[in-house]
Design a binder for these strands. Structure first.
Lengths: 324, 324
DNA sequence: TAATTTTATTGAAACGTTTCAATAATTTGT
DNA sequence: ACAAATTATTGAAACGTTTCAATAAAATTA
């Protein structure tokens, strides 16, 4: 490995001079600076970031910590985060983990944005004690070094209920995802609250399905549900995300029922495919890119970098299409 | 920051003993080992990966280097790579860069998988000299430390041409993406070759469109093209990816022409939405997950980790749907 | 020109680990 | 009970940087 020492030797200067030169210090005369730069180029010197960051005790890296790369949801968000991170002179790495979360634990990053249900609150709090600033996107957890940037999930569910009620639906079912998901449970909670406000009852045994946020699980659950409840099926379902909604639609259509005429289906997220789906999916749009931007801006404020604009609160939007 | 030294002090042992204990060395008696572990937990010790990796001269991190996070293409591939990387006891970070490629340059990774047209060959070769193993997915470049894992793009294009010709199309247009894309240009090349083999002519001025791999650019280019060539429009177009194909379809339909009756459209990639698009997109399926797996396996072989299965060659598949 | 100030360069310590070689403590064999 | 062998622990160097404090060289002043 070619190191600064090698560069220094070749340029005939000390290591310190070489270091100063590489970092463009004004202390060094431009003549020697050039000599060093040339030497570095000649022998193909590249900074060892590990050594540098060890010494400086900072990496200029922001980590986005996900549970997995699955699903069409994340790329928009990454774009938003990436924009802000680059603007602030940092780098972004995206990392999915379910266990040791090594890159987070071992101080590879100066700040973290977290959307990973494999990390429990306790773990995050212990990190925060080491003053590693974290922005959490998937839990309502807050202290000096942890700030949440959350979606207005309950509002979204309420919007959906309002629209369905307005259209005359009296029994509305709900397809939830896994209980581990903060957003998912918040959406369910909002749904229940909204029903109550409309004076509608909800019996979980009869009208609550649990799938796993995937198209195929949505399909399976809805199919089995219909098979088991040949009568008294709600005239509408709200699903905790679009993928499950698509699966549900598929199951319903296979039973020769019509969406939305027999059963209306509402999704959540407005993923890219929803507009192309047939019937096009009525859903609640989550502005993923803006979410990412807000998360990153919040993080940089914690890192002491003033942001030109305050992160704007995340707004969801009703997307009226044809499925419900 | 709480360091090993702090742990050692609290446990009443030397730093070396603390280090050995943390790493589970059999040299240390289990009694003291436990004392150290307890001390570490009590004061919340976390390894400093930078220091560790500096000393060991390896990071156990594989980097996936992309041009950007845009588009629905990558998540499947990431999943495939992630699986293999974890199996091999490494971590994966995904990183998009267009300029300095810092994480690659500064030795943050032990190996790299590259799909980034912002990096030129020369740059990669200079890295390889430092024996940083690279797998390239977007160029045909090969030496001791660089191995390509490429898609059979030309074959894919040929499949499309074959099918169209069989259906009787005599003039076939092509919608290419930006010239910077290796895959894109390979697909174009394959297209031209296949035409030739069928004895069909191709005049780039008349039948070659250049968009930018996005839906909207596909739409714009096709719209302008139709406006400018009211007659003598090919009866079919092959597009270098699905997103452009979808844009093209939209433009065609807006002109009250029918897909596929007036103009057939073939995509490339088979992204998730293609099956739901209306008309569903006839396309060439690229097995993204398998591609990722093959890339990662190839990389680990270069890193000297024997893989249980040889990476299988990537096969594309004709997806006959309704758009062409 | 000698003394002073300014500018350029350098030596050495430090960052937090790992690991070799050396020492200390314990066990074994006689 | 003592030497020898084994086991457990430790001190110190090293990884490649940055940066403080010190020195050397050059420029300025009187």
């Amino acid at each position: 490995m070619v190191t600064l020492k090698d560069v220094a030797k070749r340029a005939g200067v000390s290591v310190s001079t070489a270091s100063y030169s590489m970092n463009g210090s004004p202390l060094i005369t431009s003549d020697t600076k050039q000599r060093v730069l040339d030497a570095a180029k000649e022998i193909g010197y590249r900074t060892n970031g590990l050594a540098k960051n060890l010494k400086e005790n900072k990496t200029n890296i922001i980590g986005l910590f996900l549970s997995g790369f699955t699903g069409p949801f994340f790329t928009d968000m990454m774009e938003g985060i990436q924009d802000v991170v680059i603007q602030n002179g940092y780098e972004l790495v995206v990392y999915a983990s379910d266990d040791t979360h090594r890159l987070l634990v071992e101080r590879y990053v100066d700040g973290a944005i977290i959307l990973n249900y494999h990390m429990d609150d306790e773990f995050l709090i212990s990190l925060a004690n080491e003053k590693l600033p974290c922005v959490v996107l998937d839990r309502d957890l807050q202290n000096e070094h942890i700030k949440p940037v959350l979606l207005p999930n309950e509002l979204g569910s309420a919007m959906a209920v309002d629209h369905l009620v307005e259209k005359g639906h009296l029994t509305i079912g709900y397809m939830a995802g896994s209980e581990e998901s903060y957003d998912g449970e918040a959406r369910l909670k909002g749904f229940k609250k909204a029903l109550q406000q409309h004076g509608l009852s909800f019996s979980p045994e009869d009208h609550l399905l649990r799938a796993e946020f995937t198209e195929s699980s949505g399909y399976t659950e809805m199919r089995d549900y219909i098979n088991g409840h040949s009568s008294r099926i709600p005239t509408a379902f709200i699903c905790a995300n679009d993928e499950m909604a698509m699966g549900a639609v598929r199951a319903i259509q296979e039973k020769n029922l019509k969406v939305p005429d027999d059963i209306a289906i509402i999704g959540f997220d407005d993923i890219y495919v929803s507009q192309y789906f047939n019937p096009s999916l009525t859903t609640i749009k989550v502005p993923r890119k803006e979410w990412g931007i807000a998360a990153a801006q919040t993080l940089f404020k914690m890192l002491g970098q003033p942001q030109e604009s305050e992160p704007s609160p995340i707004q969801v939007e009703w997307m009226q299409r044809t499925s419900g």
